Amino acid sequence: MAAGGDHGSPDSYRSPLASRYASPEMCFVFSDRYKFRTWRQLWLWLAEAEQTLGLPITDEQIQEMKSNLENIDFKMAAEEEKRLRHDVMAHVHTFGHCCPKAAGIIHLGATSCYVGDNTDLIILRNALDLLLPKLARVISRLADFAKERASLPTLGFTHFQPAQLTTVGKRCCLWIQDLCMDLQNLKRVRDDLRFRGVKGTTGTQASFLQLFEGDDHKVEQLDKMVTEKAGFKRAFIITGQTYTRKVDIEVLSVLASLGASVHKICTDIRLLANLKEMEEPFEKQQIGSSAMPYKRNPMRSERCCSLARHLMTLVMDPLQTASVQWFERTLDDSANRRICLAEAFLTADTILNTLQNISEGLVVYPKVIERRIRQELPFMATENIIMAMVKAGGSRQDCHEKIRVLSQQAASVVKQEGGDNDLIERIQVDAYFSPIHSQLDHLLDPSSFTGRASQQVQRFLEEEVYPLLKPYESVMKVKAELCL
């Protein structure tokens, strides 16, 4: 049975990233139509530049190519590739079939990587351009969430054990800070992308030097003109047959890092959902379990974690691919890159769409948070109580021993009897502590235990987050809708 299948058929496997999760716009960027249309555009740009620099290419040939950029006979191309065992030459023939007058000058002087690699770089750039505003929107939604809850005390956790208090907004800023680093890295790697350009079979530009009869300047002009037509500021000066596969490492490393950030955020949300302090959106008709109707599973956060793990592992592909590119190139890269580049971007696209949807509907339960604080705060307040007693004339050592005994009794009630923490009640009825009984409410005010959390939130948002989001103001209103 021949390899390949009808990918629109229910009898043929289709990647869930495309069929179930990723956005239509990201799927289109990695589609065959987008790819092969870009090949034709690159052939047109090459012909236009070659004509401008004096090669015998007519206006009629150029116009014929322009008129057929979208006229792609995919069936013919597939048949040609089956016959020739070469995808680029299959599309040269297919393009030439609908451009008979231009057929002889299509791909003039070029090698397969002229269309293959340059198209990949265009796709990487455009895919990054799709991700950047999506990530900015996630940051914006979380920034709104953090600002609104900047002063809401909550129990902090280290080692997932109760620690000092923080605020809900401050905790959210930990998430935002990681995503801001990801946004900066995505922008950097996007701006650092260079075009492969017009380089020939081993990167020496020998074929173009021959076409222009040894004119170095025209060869350099050709490279520059096509690079500018493709919208790049610069091209690699040095290439082998391909652009260095280190570029793929750079791009997928940034995406993998984004995956790590999203995994951490969504894990926190899942843990908070278990504590009943916070939940992701839950639709009115949504079913959490087929057997347990009360369940409210954090399905979206779980999906993000599941896909983020996949995204983090994909960076190993370009690392290994770059390491086995012998001399000017081997074909070890080809099949692998067809999979890992598309999957990385479709996965990143999915987790950003999902995280935006989550961040637009996060639900906080202040009463649950308050109750958990009441359970733990008495123990945390013991040092403040000791200091207040010393100020009232008591002995630190005597007070410490009193607190120690009462704390152990209260802990026994919590752990052995399943009761509430009654340390404060014990202190309130103990005559030894009568000098500070009137101060206990103040000493137990949760806001006095959150330090500068709310001020940190305000400063972080104003100095770091809002300036970073400013270039994306025009796209901030787009909502994230999930079908599944």
Rank of each mutant, 00 (worst) to 15 (best):
G96K: 03
F433M: 08
V478E: 15
I339K: 08
T382W: 01
Q375C: 06
E417F: 11
K295M: 02
E50R: 00
A308S: 13
T158E: 00
E383F: 03
I386S: 06
T239F: 03
D441Y: 08
N353S: 14
D268M: 05
Y466C: 14
E79S: 11
D430T: 12
G104Q: 13
V251T: 14
F212P: 04
R300S: 07
L319P: 03
Y466H: 13
V363W: 05
N118L: 02
L152A: 06
S207Y: 04
T158G: 00
S334I: 02
I105Y: 10
G109E: 01
G54A: 10
R300G: 05
V219G: 05
Y34H: 11
Y34E: 06
R85Y: 12
R85I: 10
P318S: 09
Q456C: 07
E280M: 00
I105G: 08
S290G: 03
G288R: 01
C172K: 05
Q458W: 13
F208T: 05
P293F: 03
E463F: 14
A90N: 06
I62D: 01
G393C: 07
Q61H: 12
E462D: 12
R40Q: 05
K415W: 03
Q455K: 09
F36R: 08
Q439R: 08
Q221K: 13
A90C: 12
G203T: 03
V115T: 13
I237K: 10
K224P: 06
K402R: 14
K479S: 14
M380R: 02
D117L: 01
S253C: 14
D191L: 08
Q375A: 08
L186Y: 05
L440S: 06
N118K: 00
L271E: 01
S9Q: 13
F345M: 11
L258N: 08
L209N: 08
A410F: 04
E280H: 00
R372F: 03
R171C: 00
A431K: 14
M65W: 01
Y114T: 06
R309E: 02
N421I: 08
S447T: 13
T111V: 00
S290Q: 01
A344L: 04
L423Y: 08
F36V: 15
P378Q: 04
V115D: 03
L355W: 08
D333T: 02
Q161F: 00
I237F: 07
I287M: 08
C99W: 00
S253T: 14
I265N: 06
C98W: 09
C173K: 00
P56H: 13
A322G: 09
L443F: 07
K35G: 05
C27K: 08
E148W: 07
P100R: 10
K284G: 15
K82W: 12
G197E: 02
N336S: 14
A335D: 01
